[in-house]
Simulated assay, not measured.
Amino acid sequence: MNLDIARTGGGTATVTGGPQKAPPASAPPPRPAPEAGGLVPALQRRLGRGKSIPFGRLLGPLLIIAAWWAASAAGWLDPRKLSSPTSVLYSAQDLWTSGRLQDSVQTSLSRALLGLLIGVAAGVVLALASGLSRIGDAFVDGTLQVKRSIPNLALLPLLILWLGIGETMKVVVIALGVLVSVYINTHAALVSIDARYVELAEAQGLSRWQFLRKVVLPAALPGFFTGLRLAVTAAWLGLIVVEQINATSGIGYMMFQAQQYAQSGIILVGLVLYGTFGFASDALVRLVEGRVLSWRRTITA
């Protein structure tokens, strides 16, 4: 039998190469090594949120629709005030056949998307200027904190005076709501970067561009996506507001016209469209966030 004897740094001899003895029966089993996120899988199952439910976020809305359908079928709801889901479907079919639904949806989506793009771009630029520079912070942050406390509804008279009641005013109102949401969350993520990362980057001799790309961008992305989710909601809220004010097209205008003739079915079609677009856009942002931030291991993973 061949035995290899080696001495460790403390002078203790260890024997390798021979038959190994089994650990005593009373010895505890070895603990599994933590994964990349720092959580042991067994502990994550016991203390975490549990397994994800496929299409789980649809359960709440579906439950509300089922309750609405049951209450309408039981005659508990006055159809003059709240139409049944069946009536809403018939109203949507009539709007689709006439072409009004497609035109309204196309107009509303173009307004919301344009305002969202402008607001996100402006919010990111201002957050970078304020979060990475004391001079930028002095000029930008105070102004936007004041804007955050002023609702867009309060700005409407002034914006109408400046821009009229056309498409420009509607897009600007949406963009302002989006800008604040993106700025606040992205700026908070930037100023919360650990100072030790800055010291490490300086010790490694990183240039300004390398520091932004390798340290600032990854650290700010979670805050940016949080702001983006809020911005998408703000875009739809702003769209609802501007389409109720002297609009001649869009989902909000369609709902306003239906209100004049007490057509609750069409009003509910508009509400369902707003809710569907809001839910779908939030789900899309979540999907992109999961792909971009796949390096993170969180309790929801």
Rank of each mutant, 00 (worst) to 15 (best):
L3A: 08
V105P: 00
G278Q: 05
D282M: 06
Q210V: 03
P85W: 11
V242Q: 00
S181T: 13
G250H: 10
N2Y: 15
A258Q: 07
I267L: 14
K214E: 07
A283T: 11
V216S: 02
I267P: 11
S26A: 11
I267S: 09
K81D: 12
T107H: 10
A188E: 12
Y197V: 12
N2V: 15
Q44L: 14
S110Q: 07
Q204H: 10
T186A: 03
G37W: 06
G290D: 07
A6N: 15
M169V: 00
V173D: 06
L159K: 11
Q106C: 07
G250W: 07
I160R: 10
Q210D: 13
L153E: 07
E243G: 08
N246A: 08
A258D: 06
D282T: 03
R111Q: 13
E35I: 11
S84C: 01
R134I: 03
K214N: 08
S72A: 14
L109D: 03
I118T: 02
A112V: 14
W69M: 09
S52N: 04
G115Y: 01
I184W: 09
L221E: 04
F224Y: 03
A203M: 12
N152A: 11
L163T: 02
V269I: 06
V140F: 06
L39E: 15
S98H: 10
I251G: 00
L144H: 04
L293T: 12
R148D: 05
S133K: 03
I193H: 02
Q93E: 14
D94R: 07
S84Q: 00
L89E: 05
L237Y: 08
S83N: 07
P218F: 05
S104P: 02
P28A: 01
A70M: 13
T86M: 07
D94E: 13
L176G: 10
L228R: 06
